[in-house]
Each structure stands twice: as structure tokens, then as C-alpha cells.
Design a protein around this nucleic acid. Sequence first.
DNA 1: GAAGGCCTCACCCAAACGGGTGAAATTGAC
DNA 2: GTCAATTTCACCCGTTTGGGTGAGGCCTTC
Lengths: 137, 137
Amino acid sequence: MKKTVLLYGFILALVLIGLKTIEYKWLVRDLGQHLYVFLVAVLFMLLGIWFSYHLLTKKHAPQADTNEAAIKALGLSNRELEILNKLAEGLTNQQIAEVSFVSINTVKTHLKNAFMKLEVNNRTEAVNKLRQLNIIR
Amino acid sequence: MKKTVLLYGFILALVLIGLKTIEYKWLVRDLGQHLYVFLVAVLFMLLGIWFSYHLLTKKHAPQADTNEAAIKALGLSNRELEILNKLAEGLTNQQIAEVSFVSINTVKTHLKNAFMKLEVNNRTEAVNKLRQLNIIR
DNA sequence: GAAGGCCTCACCCAAACGGGTGAAATTGAC
DNA sequence: GTCAATTTCACCCGTTTGGGTGAGGCCTTC
């Protein structure tokens, strides 16, 4: 992030240098001050658009982090999270048991505990809550 | 998010001020015009940021349109969509029946047909598919 | 008016789910 | 070494869900 800010600052400096060059070598004398100001305005507006575009598009893709804070606040264990992730994919308890190499009873126990911690009553609510808390997807 | 954009805008402004200060110390000349151009630049850059922020945040949140094309391609009826939306909120069949003023059997029929059209086998899969198709949320 | 889609409802059945209790083995922390 | 948490599994119970068949009423299109 620090690198990003530095990059923008650097680009800004380049733009300023370019403007200075234009100002002193061509435009001011030949075309007048108004056009110069206009160019500055356009240039910086484009810069602003480009700038916030890059910022926003980067901010909109932080799905990798799996909100650790919320997980700890809820007290969800690792195994419970694994099971919940498979649940969110739409697997049945039996399928979860198979891919996790445990019995279906174990899956049910984990889900019972997880539902209690999440304060939900069924899997759809659970998925909604996890999504809302940015724990999945 | 807005706060973040403002923060970076502020940082950029600071960078600009710093650059300008440096410029004034070394290249002091027509002070009035420089200040004017500087203000124009800042103003239009902020304008650009504001502009694209509003554009992008609207583009990134198109949850209102409920992908009509996908709905038609799947052949989902209005009633089926209503029921599916309530399902996605985590309601049970019984609860959906109550808020929709129909019997639970009707809810089940709609869901059976909807599941067939969506090619899914349970509600979690259905919610995933609807989300993936941008039909809900 | 026949055909097809939509909405409604009923009945049945098997599977899945949710919730409760209990308990053993393992692990990590104190 | 003890305590707490985690992970594993079992059994039971009632409810929910998914899926199948059938059917009546309504509306639009042909």
C-alpha cells in the first residue's frame, strides 16, 4: 500500500514536470494562459479518475483474507470452519463427511456447535451470516 | 470506502503542497498564476476522484437489476422467484408459506420446480447458483 | 375450444437435517 | 500433571426437506 502511494506520487511528479516543460517551451507563449489552465484541469481530472479507479478496483477484491477477527470473536474452531466451508458449497452432511474422512455424526456435531456459535438455525442462515461477516466468499 | 478515498485524496493534496513548496523555493516566479493553476489542478483532480468513485461504486453494486436474461433462460416464473428469494434469506418452507399466504405444499411445489430449472438438489446449491447468476443479492 | 403455462393444493415416502445427551482420545496451556 | 478446548463418534428424537404423482382453476395463445 505504501508502495502504491509512492507510485502515485511519482506519477504526479512526472505529470508536473511535463506540465512545466509544456508551460515554458511551447504553450504559454504561443497559445496563452487559458488553454494551459484548461489542459491542467483535464489532465488532473483524468489523473483523479485513473487514481481512484485503481484504488477502488483493488479495494473491491479483498476476498482472500477470511476475516480472522470475526472468526475469533465467534470462537469457531478450525475444523468447524472447514465443515462450514464445505456446507457453503452446497454439500450435504453425508458428502461433507466423505470428503473430510470423518463420520456423518462428527459432521453433525461440528455443525451443531457452529450453528450455536453463529446463532443460526439452518444452513442457509449460516451461509448468509458467514458471507455477511466476510468469512466466506 | 469513502473515507479511504478521501484519505488518499488528502495524501495526494499533501504531496502536491509539498511539490509546490519545493517549486516555490527554487522556481519562484509568477506566484499568482502558479497558485491559480495549482488550485485548478487540485479541484479537478478531486472532481475526477469524486466522479469515478460514484461511477465505480454504482457499477460494483448492481444488485437491483436481478439479471432478467438469466431468469428467462432458466424459465423461472414470478412466484418461483419470490419463493426463492425468501429461501435465500434463510426461511424454512413453513415460514415462506406463512409470509406468502399459501400452504406449505405450494411452497414445496414451487421449490421442486425451481430446483429442477436451476439443476440443483438442495437450497444451499440453489442460493449459490442464484448468486452466481446475479439473480439475487 | 384446445393446449400450454402458471398457481394452487393434497398425499405419500425416504432421506436429510437440527438438536439433545453422552463420552473417549488428543492436544495445548497453565 | 491438570484443566480446557478440540476432535471424534454414537444414539435418539422429531422436524424438515426433496421428490414423485395427481389434480383443479385460471389465463393466454393459437
